[in-house]
Amino acid sequence: MGFEVAVNALSLGSLYALIALGIALVFGIMELINFAYGDLVMVGGYVILLTHGEGWLFVVGATVVAVIVCAVLMERIAFRPVRGADPATLLVTSFAVSYLLENLARIIFGARPKTVDAFSMLANPVDVGPISTTTLDLVTLAVTAAFLCGLALFLTRSTAGIAMRGAAEDFRTARLIGVRANRVIAMAFAISGLAAAIVAMLLLAQSGTISPTIGLVPALVGFVATVIGGLGRLYGAVIGGYVLGLVTILLQSYLPLSVLPYRDALVFGFVIVLLLLRPQGLFPSRALQERV
């Protein structure tokens, strides 16, 4: 039983970490909490719905490309005009974008959830030694690990990645040594889009349904995990995601049945207590502390 709980926690934590990274990457660079990030996940879901008759490789490729394009366009059209505005304006803009996309989906696809069995082969149970789990859990772990390693390599080895870290620390100074603002911001949105595409695929593999509001929970979870980790630190967001996944699964597994419906309330209760104890999150960013 303990092993299964651990695998479940790791798997859910991985999903949450991916979601949180998508939010933290953009926040780090332009102090925007992109609530419309959840709608990128939603877009990915509908791309899967539209393409799921094709081979899975095609579905994966189409989803990744479409969501990245959508993320970059979102920045170009909605966020570039308000770049540098105060965080409240940025947040409101992201709400507006989210509202727009959600309703667009409602008009095109209808409000009711639709079933998609794009990745049903992942639901198979597998045994790894003494642990019985599903292919999906293992894929989730592997994909997240690959994404994290790839991102770490990108951020430490490539000039573009170093520029992103520099811009996240001090945007103005980055520009003063020649880092192109438009390019790093577009890059952050593109990587955020890649994360959203992966999240969309993992979510749909798990639930098998897509609706216009599917992005709501990811946006909330991503936001909460990022805040737990301390806004502005990427590894903080990752750890925040895993903490949130762990707490959720622990409550899920060990709560008495009568209290189980209140699981999410308890999770957020835990988050509130954590933030009361550490208002800056687990790993506060220096830039934010200075601003406070």
Partner: peptide
């Protein structure tokens, strides 16, 4: 950039 190494600062 305090969170970048000296080398990374120069490389940028």
């Amino acid at each position: 950039f305090g969170r970048l190494t000296v080398e990374e600062n120069l490389r940028l």
